[in-house]
Design a protein around this nucleic acid. Structure first.
Lengths: 208, 208, 208, 208
DNA sequence: TGTTAACCGAGACGGTACGTCGCGTCTTTCT
DNA sequence: AGAAAGACGCGACGTACCGTCTCGGTTAACA
């Protein structure tokens, strides 16, 4: 996921690299300070010391900055593997709660969600990001199956989404805060649904 | 929910009323055509024939327009009452699916969600709207209890949110579309969780 | 000079009178504080407690306010009469210097001059004011003739203008300040011209 | 006198130059047609085809336009040199009369005087303009001294102002028109004062 | 180790929309 | 019935940020 067909690919060293680093850093600072709404190319250019024109050339605009920041922040944190499905799901939920609960760590993902509302590029990046995340998180389910905790035919992605959806809903739609208690409830509900066979069967292809 | 402390309250008749109607109508049209991103005070003023300055005076800006449109569109559609919890929940889910699936009917609510990302006012209006909606929808659960389908202590709002959260998640976060199949799955999951006692107990006060 | 054919002439008592007093007072305060540029109907209405609409009805606008203030401030100060032409002219010059040198006393006349640039009404009022002033000041010349200081045929108004013109020029055109030394020079120049017979003859009718 | 520290200084060629020419021309047209009161950035932008934002960027507002127009119109007309002081002064007076008598040629200077009432920048430009003009006009006096028409110690600037002050006074303060007869009187008065020794001595430094 | 294509700095501009100010006019409402 | 208070139309203001263009200057990468 990222910036393609824009300058900066062919000579990715030296000043080019320094500029990218400076711009990404400035973007993160701006996001942390003023959020998505306060993010402007102008300010990022100023803060980074890279000229506005260059920012446009290489990132194409505000959404490009955010997408690149998402790429850069793409912490490949490992999927939890505790030995039990419930604990794994709980860990996944806690991760969401903790990330968005921290205004610094949550700044970029929050901004990406916001940006996705405005820009196709950001939306694509977000969806890819989530797809990747959910895909990897599906390993949790796979291991549960291997352990015999679940029967073989379970839509793993659906299980993962069942955990995260209510959290995002509260965070971005109803504006409620989330905490570990909510996370616990979410996990419990998911387990109940899984055990009731609601997510039986393979993944349905995403409807786009 | 609504516009307060702004002109138009004290002499709510005559031209004042005509202007409001014209502006709200224009807002709806603009929203339906260009969405939230394309909604500008300038365009609404032009389309409505009401002067820009007046729009600013009375609505304060784009978010005020949307809030007022939400108020005006506040269709007090009745909560479903089919005689069974499952059918009621399914009806609630279908309502969400159908509303947001229709680009015209869904325009305003979608815009409100978008606007809530930018504006405190819009966010407040959205949250109030959802709280009201979920509150009324809780009647579904109350009736199920009365019928003996459920035991007495169930957090009704939690049940309702359990139905809607995954739908909003797909609509606004992952960008997936929703259909009746998804709705069915959501309802099934919710019922499983309810039956497993996940939502037992009274509502916890909202964490804001 | 003044407001004619506008409301407020026929019932000049009670509230009508109070309103006029309040508005004039507010106008003077605003002028003294913010000068002509800062004088707005809105502010005067607010300060005076008289409704904006009423101000428009009775004064017609900013220029009306100024004209009325000029009327109200129309101090019929006596023309100097010291017994010598030179001393009289010097007194006239000092009066100008002192008036415009004092930022409070000078506020209204300065504002009138400014206003005359924008509004026909204010210009008319100013010209009438000056004509009146110069006309009365001509008494100085008349007395000099009576005393035998001057021969009979002198354009009295021209003499008076010869004294004031350089002062206004400095004040309003070149932006220089004026002081008593300048006033003295102006008087000396005028006397020289008078004695050289430059202003001999009757007044020429004003060229408008 | 002029625009400083604003865009357009560093790359004064190409489009930049074309824009400046277009804007100045449009300003002159607007001034000639509607006078100072009718001069708006909006109209100048429209007429010139240069975007409003650009006009603000480079000229800063209406006063900047006028200042620049004054610069551009800064016709360095030569100071008269006829061989006699009286004729020279008369020529100076006629120049003022003719300039302001012609509604086209007089448009810019009139506007500058008006603008000087509103804006510090315009005032500064006007004062500088007049200082320059009077300074150059002082050559008339110098030559008279060289010819022996006057004794050596005469405040040349005072002489020049003595000629122009009454004319500006009539034009801008009393609203009278000026003609050659008035100009003659003014010259006569000045000569009388000069001969009487009123303007003896060097220039006093301007009191600002 | 040059050279050259790639990248960048710099300044100015067109454009959309914003939000505001003050003027002067209507028109609803209340007495 | 008539005015007072409220709302409005209107033109202009000055600004923010967007995205683009043109020029000329560096510089990374490859021959």
């Amino acid at each position: 996921v990222g910036v393609t067909e824009l300058p900066g690919r062919r000579r990715p060293g030296g000043r080019t690299a320094r500029n990218r680093a400076a711009v990404v850093a400035a973007t993160l600072v701006e996001l942390a300070r003023h959020g998505y709404a306060g993010l402007s190319v102008e300010n990022v250019a100023e803060r980074s010391g890279v000229h506005k024109t260059t920012v446009y050339r290489r990132w194409g605009g505000v959404d490009g900055l955010i997408v690149d920041a998402l790429d850069a922040a793409d912490d490949d944190r490992p999927v939890p593997d505790t030995g039990s499905l419930e604990a794994d799901l709980r860990a996944l939920a806690y991760e969401v709660v903790d990330t968005f609960g921290d205004s610094v760590r949550g700044a970029v993902p929050t901004a990406v969600v916001h940006a996705a509302f405005h820009s196709e590029r950001a939306a694509t990046a977000l969806h890819a990001f989530l797809a990747d995340r959910h895909g990897r998180a599906a390993g949790v389910v796979a291991r549960a199956i291997a352990r015999g905790e679940l029967s073989g035919s379970v839509d793993a992605a659906a299980v993962v989404r069942s955990v995260t959806a209510p959290l995002y809903f509260r965070l971005f739609i109803t504006g409620e805060t989330v905490d570990r208690e909510v996370a616990g409830q979410v996990v419990a509900a998911t387990l109940a649904a899984v055990r009731a066979g609601v997510y039986r069967g393979q993944a349905r292809p995403p409807l786009l």
